[in-house]
Design a protein around this nucleic acid. Structure first.
Lengths: 265, 265
DNA sequence: TTGCTCCTCACGTCACGTGAGGTGGC
DNA sequence: TTGCTCCTCACGTCACGTGAGGTGGC
């Protein structure tokens, strides 16, 4: 009637979740009452959505509707997060298995832009640390001089960073008028033809997106021309939810002359 | 670099999924090569979508793209089924927690219908068995006399079945013109005002839908008038996929005279 | 030399399922 | 009486994580 197996009922007895109404002391047989059916069915429904046995016990143990709602809401939130996680993972996998078909690439000409920037030649393994420090310094300098950013922050990454494990890196924030301050320098980014795509989610699989974009560029008979532009449309400063991050990758392109090597990294 | 923990790497070594390129015989330290990074990342992505370690090993072990596609497709199918299962379970839970808000009820007047029917007085615990047998007999009789059903099969269930654990049950198939044959009798179902809702999925939680429909009827100042109609729009004869089943519940109603008892079961 | 990391057992987690060997209930 | 169900251990499953006690590597 409850669709619970005998083994499961024994398990719930041991766990203190659903105790038999009576146990025959001679045979140790477990006996249940009709009134326990709806309880058992409720338990089954919560288990069906993956709520841990412990929490179901807490839920049934409290009569407070607020506490109940909280426990249920929290679990539904977990389900939601898990679903989002799986969706992202499936998308990453599809990008890995069939890169070009699953990527959305557009060509664009970026206009000349003036930015406040810090740049340096950095080893590949130091890039993340360097970026964090430089960005903090940049933000502090802008705050100090009262400059307001006019767009999301970005970075420029030399191809040598991947090929030689060392290269020039620029971190910048677009501003109305850039001024010098500490390591911060005004920088003019010239107009650039780029192939752009957006990487969704955390950066641990951004290499897959790079690979897909590289294949797209190659298939369209284009070659790389200059450092890659990353624009952090939504990043850790905007939300701690990694799955919401959006990173635009702009790959500078020129028509492929023929013998030009288009490989990167 | 791969976001795999040391414990996880040890586990994959034991499982034969990812063997170290070299093991120092003195210290037993595991050493990996750069070329193993993409493999490790691929493994992580498959684990991320919940593919069992065993299947990932199979996947990486075969070079046949067809076999690979099959394994991946099968797992994506499993994810899809699991998602559907969770969706149904969440819906059932919501119906249980807030019945009236989550149910879609319509009022309708069913026209007079002629059906081929088998009816009997049955004990509650025998209903399912009785229904199966009667329906088989009904189908066989129709096939024998060359009658074609003009709609989905249905059943009528007396209120006493729940209140007294014993009551009259009718199983029927609508036909153009019904004839006698064995236990099969023509039956005229008179025009009936009903409150109808559709129960989705298997019948193990149909009691929840009944409860919600009962509350709706009560809140709209209506009372029950006659046996409940069930119509099996999509059932086990149509698909083995229980989540696709659709059962219409029609609750015969009259305006509540005031002191009339509207409770059922 | 010191602290950090790696190593090997061995056990824990979670929600049951499996299976052996035995016994009660109708 | 016979077959069915229940019982109690005890172990298995799955993918690691935890923790103790020890040792290598820089």
């Amino acid at each position: 009637m409850t669709h619970l197996s005998v083994k499961t009922l024994r398990h719930y007895h041991e766990a203190g979740l659903l105790e038999p109404a009576e146990i025959d002391p001679r045979s140790s047989y477990r006996y249940y009452e009709v009134g326990q059916i709806p309880i058992a069915q409720t338990i089954r429904r919560f288990r069906d959505i993956g709520m841990p046995v412990r929490e179901i016990a807490d839920l049934l143990g409290t009569g407070d509707p607020g506490a109940r709602g909280h426990l249920i809401g929290r679990h539904l939130g977990r389900l939601e997060a898990q679903l989002e996680h799986t969706r992202n993972a499936v998308a990453a996998l599809q990008r890995l298995l069939d890169p070009v078909a699953t990527i959305d690439v557009r060509r664009r000409t970026n206009p000349r832009t003036v930015v406040a920037a810090i740049s340096d030649t950095v080893a590949l393994h130091e890039v993340l640390t360097w970026y964090d420090e430089a960005m903090n310094e940049l933000r502090a300098a802008l705050a100090e001089t009262g400059q307001v950013s006019t767009g999301p922050p970005g970075g420029l990454y030399d191809n040598e960073l991947v090929t030689d494990e060392r290269g020039r890196v620029v971190v910048y924030v677009p501003v109305a008028e850039a001024a010098r301050s500490g390591r911060v320098r005004p920088l003019e980014i010239p107009p650039t033809d780029v192939a752009v795509t957006i990487h969704r989610g955390a950066h641990d699989d951004i290499d897959v997106t790079y690979g897909a974009l590289g294949m797209w560029v190659d298939q369209h008979d284009l070659a790389i021309a200059g450092p890659v532009h990353e624009t952090y449309l939504v990043g850790p400063r905007d939300t701690p939810d990694e799955s919401a991050w959006r990173t635009e990758i702009g790959w500078p392109i020129v028509p492929d002359a023929g013998g030009v090597d288009t490989t990167v990294g």
